[in-house]
Design a protein around this nucleic acid. Sequence first.
DNA 1: ATGGTAGTGTAACTA
Length: 258
Amino acid sequence: MKLATWNVNSLNVRLPQVLAWLEAHQPDVLALQETKLEDHRFPAADFATLGYSAAFSGQKTYNGVALLSRTPLGDVQTGIPGFEDEQRRVLAATVGGVRVACLYVPNGQAVGSDKYAYKLEWLAAARDWLRDELAAHGRLAVVGDFNVAPEDRDVHSPKRWEGQVLVSGPERDAFRELLDLGLHDAFRLHEQPERVFSWWPYGRLGFPRNWGLRIDHVLVSPPLAAECRACTVDVAPRRHERPSDHAPVVATFAAPSD
DNA sequence: ATGGTAGTGTAACTA
């Protein structure tokens, strides 16, 4: 199984890139964030042409998540149960015996802001929900844009970023609490080069200098961790004209019998 | 030089 996640920062703009990437890489599942499309505008027919089914939960201008799959998506769920939120940030579905949760964690804007408080509340609610998901589904993958760089090695310049939103202590603690549920960061299951990131600011000071953060993640339950063979960031789409500011993260898993 | 770039949508917000 090949599972990927990509914050596309407007599916309307990025659709040709996403279609090309799907054709080239043929993942079993691709999770998208920041589609910024209302559901009636979701380009399901374009994905169907490539053999992908889609589930989606979107809104105008902001947020929006989707799951694309080569096999049917079952038990589709939107939002965190019991957590009232108008922002479309969560979508979960079952694919081939694997429960996949697609998250677009709030950015948080700035430490101490209202949006930062919302981010921490949101992460606490997600943690409580995912504890239940983990109990209900042995094979669980939680993927998406977490808007948290878990450790200093996930930050191009830890000193410059120290205490800032995306790397602050409380955000890292919240991310750690997800791992403490029994989830594994698929990227860290494997030996990795230094300075691998998944997001870079737009502009000359961003990608060209690799001034990035690793904030997009694939978290997996123990059975999937045992089957995980690789987890990489595909930086190629970040070089395109009109790129998303994020690159796809791709995890591959051996079949359970292998 | 005294701030940058992108998307939405056409002012101002979010990232």
